[in-house]
Amino acid sequence: MLDRADTVLAMDASVLATLRAVCGPENENRLRLYLGDLDVPDPMGQDDAAFHECAVLIEVGAALHIGGRIT
């Protein structure tokens, strides 16, 4: 699938590190964090407010990507 992707977005730095290790240095320019330099927190095991906060961050990130502000 990486061959067909212009950009691969990771939700947090640990996933990004794994992608970098798996995909190799030749794909470094296609791998990015979803929120630029911030992690999207994992709300698993937390209350509804944590899930809501995570959803808001994901929506903000989507808007930024669609608007072209995060590259």
Results as ranks from 00 to 15, higher is better:
57 L>V: 08
1 M>E: 13
45 G>S: 01
30 R>K: 14
25 P>T: 15
23 C>E: 15
17 A>M: 12
30 R>N: 06
53 E>F: 09
68 G>T: 13
54 C>P: 03
54 C>E: 07
6 D>S: 12
8 V>L: 13
10 A>G: 10
1 M>F: 09
58 I>M: 10
1 M>R: 12
70 I>E: 05
67 G>F: 02
35 L>V: 11
32 R>V: 12
34 Y>V: 03
11 M>S: 04
38 L>M: 03
68 G>R: 10
5 A>F: 04
28 E>N: 05
39 D>H: 00
17 A>K: 14
7 T>R: 14
13 A>D: 15
48 D>F: 01
49 A>K: 09
30 R>G: 03
65 H>K: 02
59 E>T: 03
44 M>T: 11
34 Y>E: 05
66 I>Y: 10
40 V>I: 15
51 F>L: 09
13 A>M: 14
69 R>I: 14
36 G>E: 10
38 L>F: 14
2 L>N: 13
2 L>V: 14
36 G>S: 04
60 V>H: 11
3 D>R: 02
55 A>L: 02
23 C>L: 12
20 R>V: 08
14 S>A: 13
3 D>T: 12
4 R>I: 03
16 L>Y: 00
18 T>P: 08
36 G>V: 04
20 R>W: 05
41 P>M: 01
51 F>G: 05
37 D>Y: 00
15 V>I: 15
65 H>C: 00
45 G>L: 08
27 N>V: 01
35 L>I: 12
43 P>T: 13
11 M>A: 05
19 L>G: 02
34 Y>D: 01
38 L>C: 13
67 G>E: 03
33 L>Y: 08
67 G>N: 05
18 T>L: 14
14 S>V: 10
25 P>R: 07
65 H>Q: 02
20 R>A: 13
56 V>C: 10
41 P>Q: 09
45 G>K: 07
69 R>G: 13
45 G>C: 07
1 M>C: 09
14 S>N: 05
53 E>R: 11
46 Q>V: 11
47 D>I: 01
26 E>A: 15
26 E>N: 00
47 D>Q: 04
51 F>S: 01
29 N>A: 07
17 A>C: 11
42 D>W: 02
66 I>Q: 07
7 T>C: 11
31 L>P: 04
68 G>D: 06
46 Q>W: 01
33 L>V: 09
48 D>W: 01
42 D>K: 06
14 S>C: 12
13 A>P: 10
22 V>Y: 01
51 F>I: 03
70 I>C: 06
10 A>N: 04
68 G>Q: 05
21 A>K: 00
35 L>P: 06
20 R>F: 02
25 P>L: 11
60 V>K: 13
19 L>S: 02
6 D>R: 00
41 P>G: 03
64 L>Q: 14
54 C>Q: 09
24 G>C: 07
10 A>H: 05
65 H>T: 06
61 G>I: 08
37 D>M: 08
1 M>Q: 08
70 I>N: 10
28 E>Q: 03
3 D>L: 07
71 T>P: 06
3 D>W: 05
11 M>I: 10
51 F>K: 06
23 C>D: 09
10 A>C: 11
50 A>K: 00
63 A>W: 03
12 D>W: 01
